[in-house]
Amino acid sequence: MIEDNNISSAWIRTLKHIIECPGNEITPLVVSLTEFNESPAFRVALDSDLKKNDKAKVHTVAETIFPESLYVLNGYDRHKLYKGFLEILPRIKKIDASSNARGTYFERLIAFDGGPKGKINQLENIITSLQDRVIKRRSKLQASIFDPSKDHTEGAYQRFPCLQHVTFYMTPNGKLILNSFYAVQYLYERAYGNWLGLINLGKFVAHEIGTELERFTCFIGVEKLDKLTKSEGQNLLDLMAEKANL
């Protein structure tokens, strides 16, 4: 269990725990964040290391969960965001056809394949429910990413979707909590961007209902060190200490 008010610090603590303990996984891991501070110098240093290893930058990973830049571009209008995202979705899938063949995270949130019911905008259902402020059934405040009809495959290696599920909760003081669930998460390549993207998603929902995001909690079945050895992980920590003063 890692509880912090800084995304950068939480990521570093997770990496340190894996390095100091046997194996290269944490099973399970719970990360709970408030205030959502971040070290810009840390982000620059991590992005530089990711680029060196031909991995996506933190911002790129975060945008797969919530396309904040598109939200800003559309004047913080969520309906324009939905429409604009679905319009460019074919291009997004074409850019990385191997990863996006079964869909994208934000697509599953706003256009989940409901079979005979058609496409379901799970986020809009949650937002309109929260706007009422009288939640008769809290189980309604959840959205699925994993789709058994598409994702139960026999492939030996499947990267999407690692994020399975998100739920929302309104506290007695009217603030918002976002919970997320991962079967497997890749610490080096994805975790920081995942957490940032989910926090941005929570802030989006909070903004749309006129409140603030109070806490983000991520439940992970298996947190993997993925592409790094422990010695490489320690070298990365040393680099962060030097460049980001962490």
Rank of each mutant, 00 (worst) to 15 (best):
I110Y: 00
I110H: 07
I110D: 02
A111D: 01
A111N: 05
F112K: 05
F112R: 06
D113G: 06
D113I: 02
D113M: 04
G114E: 09
P116Q: 09
P116L: 13
K117M: 10
G118L: 08
G118D: 06
G118N: 09
K119C: 06
K119H: 04
K119A: 14
K119R: 08
K119V: 15
I120E: 02
I120C: 05
N121L: 10
Q122P: 10
Q122A: 08
L123F: 01
E124H: 02
E124M: 02
I126G: 04
I126A: 04
I127Y: 05
T128G: 14
S129K: 04
S129E: 14
S129V: 07
L130M: 05
L130D: 04
Q131K: 14
Q131D: 09
D132I: 15
D132A: 14
R133G: 03
R133V: 13
I135A: 06
I135W: 03
I135Y: 11
I135H: 11
I135T: 10
K136E: 11
K136L: 10
K136F: 10
R137S: 10
R137C: 06
R137F: 03
R138I: 01
R138P: 01
R138H: 07
S139T: 15
S139Q: 15
K140G: 13
K140L: 13
L141G: 01
Q142G: 13
A143S: 02
S144N: 15
I145H: 11
F146E: 03
F146I: 06
D147T: 10
D147E: 11
D147K: 02
P148G: 04
P148Y: 01
S149W: 13
K150Y: 12
K150L: 09
K150Q: 06
K150I: 01
D151W: 05
D151T: 00
H152D: 11
H152V: 15
H152I: 15
T153Q: 02
E154I: 12
G155V: 03
G155D: 14
A156W: 14
A156P: 08
A156T: 14
A156F: 15
A156G: 12
Y157W: 15
Q158E: 14
Q158Y: 09
R159T: 05
R159L: 04
R159N: 11
F160N: 06
F160I: 06
P161C: 04
P161L: 04
C162K: 12
C162T: 00
C162V: 01
L163I: 03
L163F: 12
Q164T: 09
Q164V: 04
H165L: 07
H165W: 12
H165T: 05
V166P: 08
